[in-house]
């Protein structure tokens, strides 16, 4: 049983859950992901690992409530359990294979967009615990959507915050401060790690390409098994087809075919919408019921 040990709402749409999963916790590394099945009729939902505690045997996941499955997950409370919790899957971050000496001489910049902050966090935490603080650009739609700000700041060197509406930090997109750093301040970075919506990662990769800065992105496409079996998660890297679940989820951002990735991401959109519509109706009915009971 994969019991939910803690549940926290990070913002109206984003939840954090600490789940008891000793086998996953024992082997998890930054950059890897898990597959969660909410209940016995549920889908296999891939989610990045935000944190893990080997001693406690727990893994922390952060997810945005966007469809049927994440809504089901959101309804579970502390003490409830997920039907299944599989992992760790995918390759660990390239960073953690490097020696402290190699890392100490490097300038690293992380760029997190929205819930992309969740998979960024374990990497920055790992680096900090190995004596390396990296810079961070943290972007979100508005101030209320920013997550894990305190946790990330504790593990970061310089932090730049952007929001689309300017309600926190600089107004605009993450590419604003990025362009400023690379062009105006002539900052040298050996590596940039960008995780967020596909369109954000694409914009970052397009910008860093002209500065010739190695840029790593982490993809989260549709997938079923997460072990290389179905091929639903295939992406084109350079001119090769790769499976995100076993070859990734991290890839060289300058080689990813983002147009194809975005198109494939939308493959089941009409079905998801239909579910969403039904669920919204369910929720409305539930809410009016609970109101009438009060």
């Amino acid at each position: 049983m994969f019991v939910i040990l803690e549940k926290k709402r990070l913002n109206p749409d984003v939840l954090e859950m600490k789940v008891s999963a000793p086998r996953v916790a024992e082997f998890a590394q930054p950059g890897q992901f898990v597959i969660v099945i909410p209940d016995k009729t549920g889908e296999r939902v891939p989610l990045t690992i935000c944190d893990y505690d080997r001693k406690a045997g727990s893994v922390t996941i952060v997810f945005q409530v966007v469809g049927l499955s994440t809504r089901k997950m959101a309804r579970l409370e502390k003490g409830d359990a997920f039907a299944d919790f599989v992992g760790p899957l995918g390759k660990s971050s390239e960073l953690i294979s490097e020696s402290p000496e190699e890392l100490s001489g490097k300038n690293i910049l992380f760029i997190a967009g929205g819930v992309g902050a969740a998979p960024i966090y374990p990497q920055m935490k790992w680096l900090n615990s190995h004596g390396k603080k990296a810079d961070l650009i943290l972007g979100a739609r508005d101030a209320g959507q920013l997550i894990l700000v305190k946790e990330l700041k504790e593990n970061a060197n310089k932090v730049f915050i952007t929001t689309n509406d300017g309600s926190a930090g600089t107004k605009g997109f993450v590419t604003g401060p990025l362009n400023d750093l690379l062009l105006n301040r002539s900052c040298h970075y050996d590596r940039i790690i960008a995780i967020g919506p596909l369109i954000m990662m694409k914009s970052v990769a397009d910008l860093t390409r002209s500065f010739n800065v190695k840029t790593i992105v982490s993809l989260n496409p549709l997938m079923i098994d997460g072990t290389g079996m179905c091929g639903a998660c295939r992406v084109t890297i350079g001119n090769q087809t790769k499976f995100t679940c076993v070859d990734g989820p991290e890839f060289d951002g300058h080689l990813v075919n983002f147009e194809e990735a975005m198109r494939r991401q939308a493959m089941y959109k009409p079905e998801e919408k239909e579910h969403d519509h039904l669920c919204n109706m369910d929720l409305a009915v539930e809410e009016s019921h609970s109101k009438s009971l009060k």
């Binding site: 290389g228 079996m229 179905c230 091929g231 295939r234 084109t236 087809t241 198109r263 493959m267």
Partner: peptide, 26 residues
């Protein structure tokens, strides 16, 4: 033997092309 083979022909990553493994697993 769970790893699906593809043909490596143009257009194989278009939406609507899938491995039998994916289709049958679903």
């Amino acid at each position: 033997a769970g790893l699906p083979k593809f043909m490596n022909i143009p257009g194989e990553n278009l939406n609507g092309v899938l491995s039998a493994n994916e289709f049958l697993t679903r």
